[in-house]
Design a protein around this nucleic acid. Structure first.
Lengths: 257, 257
DNA sequence: GCTATGCTATGACGTAAGGTAAGAGTCAAG
DNA sequence: CTTGACTCTTACCTTACGTCATAGCATAGC
């Protein structure tokens, strides 16, 4: 029973690379028990056990910098560290779950590259509402542009459309959180800028110059006139409507001056 | 509506940093539409849209190197890429889930630093078996060492014990897969080496020199004598028993020579 | 025209956890 | 004494940027 391992032996025992041991040595995370006169590293049982501890925390995704203190400080509050760590892992996992959903949707869309009918374009709204929505759009912007927009949208890969819609949701979500802020504040205007860019993309993919600032102001009116735009989590929110109106008007004015 | 953005403007619009745009330019992922005579970057609507595409794939965790080809090659099989990507994300997520379980167990153990009784030490085995197990150990190694080992184990933070047990499971699992290999082969002996180290830790934390190679050979006998050691997924496996015996004896002999 | 301020460009260093390689020294066996 | 296996240190490469540092441009006020 030799209480004495070379780098390679220890590496093999613990299932890590020699380089890793070199690194841990340099980081003072795991120093060899001694060095031979030719500077060869020699490790003992104590080091083997410590290495196993290190690898345990590594499995838990702790950064190396944190593992040293954990092992060296006997009073370290490991439970708290683990609980905190757990939170971040949960966050990561949830993020991945969201990604999976996004991918699924995207793949779903991609499998049928272009949309086949208007119903899908206005999906998620009842038919009468879709009709009313379209009529409003025609009234505001004229039939020609609406027709061209619909054509562009129909020929657009679903991916982009999905992205636009996802962006819309994201923007709306962020704006809802800001509803108590000043509509002219930077935070709000930042999102409004995104909103503007998004709307512009939505209504004029091939020629974004079609959405003039004036038209955007018109859209602000719509936001107040049409409940659908200002419905948050299933119920109408007039406060949000007013907020959006002010924010959009402010944005449009700042663009004009 | 100016079809013309500076780095800063575009960065703000898309919610990225200027540095990011510089980087994308260098990577030829997103080049400016033109450069002014003083080499200032100028971007148009086309670049804005492309940037949004890039960010979409980035959200999906695609490395930048893969995003370029996706956008540039119209024949790129996006669906296949996404499906493959999905697999890796699922793997990652499952990994995180495992981590969470490990953390939970660890925290659970840590909250009661030392074990309170022998039952927990031999947890998972029926009492009579535990008794028989202990008697066998006493017979083989003497009462003194068993008592001392138990004491050491009882005073050991559960964390380590859990780790040892987990390692045991892991080692056993790997060995089961190798049962058709030559017991003297490198693959097998590698795991046996781990097994040896683990057993040594288990029976002599404070003084690992207590497990002599001879004792390990004795343990090899036990593996054949005791069904419990060679039970795989609920049922006894004599083939595995013989395999372990050979592998352990080989290991011990190679250590002695 | 001069300057203060702000935007921009390029280059280089740092990050986490090692992989990989280069060049040189060391050790045990034949 | 040579060969092959092992080890040493140094150092560059990876991802996707952040953070300076230095210097060139642009614009508004004086």
């Amino acid at each position: 029973m030799k209480d004495d391992y070379s780098v390679k032996q220890l590496a093999k025992l613990a299932g890590v690379s020699v380089r890793t041991l070199h690194l841990y040595d340099k980081l003072n995370l795991l120093n060899p028990s001694i060095r031979t006169e030719s500077r060869y590293r020699r490790y003992g049982e104590k080091e083997l056990l410590r290495l196993q501890q290190i690898l345990f925390y590594k499995v838990l995704d702790f950064p190396l910098k944190e593992i040293g203190p954990i092992l060296d400080d006997p009073d370290f509050d490991l439970v708290k560290a683990l609980e905190g760590h757990k939170e971040s892992i949960i966050t990561k996992r949830d993020h991945l779950t969201t990604l999976l959903q996004t991918i699924d949707k995207t793949v779903d869309h991609l499998k049928n590259k272009t949309m086949s009918n208007y119903e899908e374009l206005y999906e998620g709204m009842p038919k009468e509402e879709a009709e009313a929505y379209r009529n409003e759009a025609v009234e505001k912007w004229g039939e020609a542009i609406v027709l061209r927009s619909e054509k562009a949208l129909l020929e657009m890969p679903k991916l982009n459309l999905g992205q636009l819609k996802a962006d819309q949701k994201d923007i709306a979500g962020k704006l809802v959180l800001l509803v108590n802020e000043n509509p002219e504040s930077g935070l709000v205007q930042e999102q409004i800028a995104r909103h503007y860019a998004n709307i512009r993309s939505f209504w004029g993919v091939s020629d974004p110059t079609d959405l003039k600032i004036g038209t955007y102001k018109g859209l602000a009116d719509l936001y107040v006139a049409d409940d659908r735009y200002t419905t948050v989590e299933g119920k109408t929110n007039p406060v949000f409507a007013a907020f959006m109106y002010k924010a959009m008007m402010c944005f449009a004015d700042s663009k004009l001056k």
